[in-house]
Write a protein that binds this DNA or RNA. Sequence first.
RNA 1: GGCUCGUUGGUCAAGUGGUUAAGACGCCGCCCUCUCAAGGCGGAAUCAGGAGUUCAAUUCUCCUACGAGCUGCCA
Length: 498
Amino acid sequence: MKIRTRYAPSPTGRMHVGNLRTALYEYLIARHENGEFILRIEDTDQERFFEGALEIIYHTMEETGLDYDEGPDKPGDCGPYVQSERVTAGIYMEYAKKLVEKGEAYYCFCTKERLESLKQEIAGKEIVAYDKHCLHLTQEEIEANLNSGMPFVIRQNIPNEGTTTFVDDIYGEITVENAELDDMILIKSDGYPTYNFANVVDDHLMGITHVVRGNEYLSSTPKYIRLYDAFGWEPPVFVHLPLITDEEHHKLSKRSGHSSFEDLVEQGFLPEAIVNFIALLGWSPEGTDEIFSLKELIECFDYKRVNKSPAVFDMVKLRWMNGEYIKAMDDDAYQAYAMDYVKGAFAEATEDSVVNADGVRLDKDALGKILMLLKTRIEVFPDIAEKIDFLNQMPEYDVAMYTHKKMKTDSAISLNVLEETLPILEAQEDYSVDALHDRIMQYIGEKGVKNGVVLWPLRTAVSGKQSTPGGAFEIMDILGKEESLRRIRIGIEMLKQS
RNA sequence: GGCUCGUUGGUCAAGUGGUUAAGACGCCGCCCUCUCAAGGCGGAAUCAGGAGUUCAAUUCUCCUACGAGCUGCCA
């Protein structure tokens, strides 16, 4: 039988990484077996509906490459794919009534007040166990209530004896006492189905073979099993996924900064890297490789290798992985992504050049060089700004920076080096990295000193920073002759005064 | 409180009744090097605790501890 999985989000906000991972696994399970993957919108909670959430879902699916075969915008044979539309079509009520006829469900007219009186506080938590009060209503009473327009819900009728057992493909066989299972509501008083009910009905009607979802549903799955049994339907394969937590081992929260896909993208992460990273949270491939494209994941994804224990979302490793993706990007794609960040680091930017805070214009060529210098040095695009601030403006720095033990330099040596190289650099016309390299190395050769003795002071003068992407030659090449000389002269002045 | 699930280095994790208990991130050191990266090499660091079964337990069983989830007219 062909595998069919579904991703069934509620449109209540941004897409949480836990949900994204569920979507990913559902997608991979289906695609790995050439099965079908569908998108269903579970908008049965009128109150939590969030304007724009639908667009976020579509957009995220597209950006991550999780293409579905059927969905609200891709009609198939099982539509509609939005639950509120299915409510309008009367689907859930129809099935709920079937259950009522079978005695597997019943109308409940209990008021909020009566339910409230059932509440008991145990260990500081309020717990309600419905007492099946309305199960014992007579047919006449039910009809009278219905005819008088009294609001009602439909509840599942779960026996108080016996046990219910099911097998989860990851967690194994799980058995619970039926007495533990409350008579959950199937149809709410507003006529909408609850998630629990709509889920079962739709999964069955849509031919879903593998239900993949978070661990939080594990303990309510017996109720679903009872629903499938009540209908006389074959339950699907259940695949429950371990939780993703924050560093404190708590469920990911909005505060932790890595709650949603969109947040991550805003922080400069690439969709491919995010997908790759979350694929490895709760699942591991057979070998030791860790970098996988979506295509490769489809090939090697074996859901039987999903593990049971919760995984901490490690931002540091995500950053590393993103850096790997940046390094692996082809130059054009990389430039397209990074250019705005580079331009943003300067005082003024035009189509193909920038002007820095000191009024120096850097052309397209220079921008390209900056970009390439940065490629192996950033993990996330916003890292760029801090790395090239010295190109925008000559920073204030301390002359102490000229003293470097390992480079065998101090103020006096540096002053001498800068004064001697200044005329050489003034005479130099070609400021390409190679030409500067040849000329300065010639000087170093003549002096018979270590490279660092000359290059450290030069790099310091021209950048004003302890560390920079690229060395003295690269920086001078980017800055150009005039600005390089200006900065070196400033360095000479500073050293003279000290 | 009850129920359900989980526990291999700091983190992601592989793995097995007998192994030097993989690999990755991070950390530390070395090499390369004009700085920072990248790259190369190396290092420290793990089977939650206790019983039991067994010639042998990280692996199987039980208990404890800890963590998480559920216990909604939320999903």
